[in-house]
């Protein structure tokens, strides 16, 4: 019910916001979805990843290359991105799920950095470090001819983000989600029940990777540009921070943190010049002390009190 209400309010935003704010919010929603997908790994599966941006980048490059060479349809590009995300998740996750905790963190960091190098050094395909340019603007069911593109694209992004959230929520609630949580809590018992622990973990990585790649497609379509920095540790850290600020056991929390952090950066970097990073550093410190469960803790506390 709340989700529907939130979607309705968000859908009305084009009537409230200007073009720039709308594009900022579009980016915020895409990052929100990607942060929520990472929360599935970090919170639900107990797999802290420092290479999640690789999925963003794989999805973005897949969508951008599809747009450039195959189809200008946003839906086709999205499909290509999700497919690429699944393949990338299966190939890298197969190895990654053998490690745990801090070692998983570092293994995924290695995957991300190797992906950055691969994108940088495949200049013929990816445009190298100067990025993939010449991506055409996506078509959106012909609606873009009737209305301003930023508005149509915002609704498209909102629809994709809503669908992605629905997938994440369904997985969390369903039998796979229970199995994933089980491997986090007690590997030995899950194995005794006949589950393949690496298999369950790989499924978690694949779902999170596919959803994140969908977010990556939105980034590529919004900016009609992708660069190797999209895959790098800087973005991975940002996504992880969004999860921790929002609350790792939640989907809405990280999404909210993503929108909030992007808005905060926008305001502070404009107003403070090179001092905006100090505000961000202080925010991280304060949040650790004041919001131990992240933003999600705020409404949980409320619910408990009621």
């Amino acid at each position: 019910m709340r989700a529907i209400l939130a979607a309705a309010v968000l859908a009305a935003m084009p009537f409230v916001l200007g073009a720039y704010q709308l594009s900022l919010l579009t980016g915020g929603l895409a990052y929100g979805l990607m942060a929520a997908s990472l929360a599935l790994l970090v919170g639900h599966a107990g797999l802290p990843s420092l290479g999640h941006a690789a999925f963003l980048g794989v999805g973005a490059y897949a969508a951008g290359l599809t747009a450039k060479h195959l189809s200008e349809s946003a839906v086709v590009q999205l499909g290509a991105a999700v497919l690429a995300g699944v393949v990338f998740a299966l190939v890298t996750g197969w190895f990654a799920v053998r490690t745990r905790g801090f070692f998983f963190l570092m293994f995924t960091l290695a995957i991300g950095e190797i992906a950055v190098q691969a994108a940088t050094r495949s200049g013929r395909v990816t445009g190298g470090d100067n990025g993939l340019s010449g991506i055409p603007v996506s078509t959106l069911f012909g609606l873009e001819t009737a209305m301003p593109y930023v508005v149509v694209f915002y609704w498209w992004a909102l629809a994709v983000v809503a669908a992605g959230f629905a997938v994440l929520a369904a997985v969390r609630r369903g039998p796979l989600g229970a199995a994933i949580a089980g491997t986090r809590e007690n590997e030995a018992r899950m194995a005794a029940f006949g589950y393949s622990v690496p298999g369950v973990r790989l499924a978690a990585v694949t779902v999170a990777g596919a959803v994140c790649a969908a977010g990556g497609a939105l980034v590529a379509q919004k900016d009609t540009f992708v660069a190797p920095t999209h895959l790098g540790v800087g973005v991975s850290v940002l996504l992880l921070v969004m999860v921790l600020l929002g609350g790792r056991d939640s989907l809405a929390g990280p999404a909210l943190a993503a929108v909030g952090l992007i808005a905060l950066r926008d305001v502070t970097s404009g107003a403070l010049g090179d001092k905006w990073l100090l505000v961000e550093g202080a925010l991280f410190v304060l949040c650790v002390y004041l919001l131990p469960e992240g933003l999600a803790g705020l409404w949980r506390k409320r619910a408990r009190a009621a």
């Binding site: 802290p48 921790l244 961000e280 550093g281 202080a282 991280f284 410190v285 650790v288």
Partner: peptide, 15 residues
């Protein structure tokens, strides 16, 4: 847990 420490020390490192 480690992730809360990571966020705290990341914030302190930035500062």
């Amino acid at each position: 847990g480690h992730l809360d420490q990571a966020l705290l020390t990341l914030g302190l490192a930035i500062l």
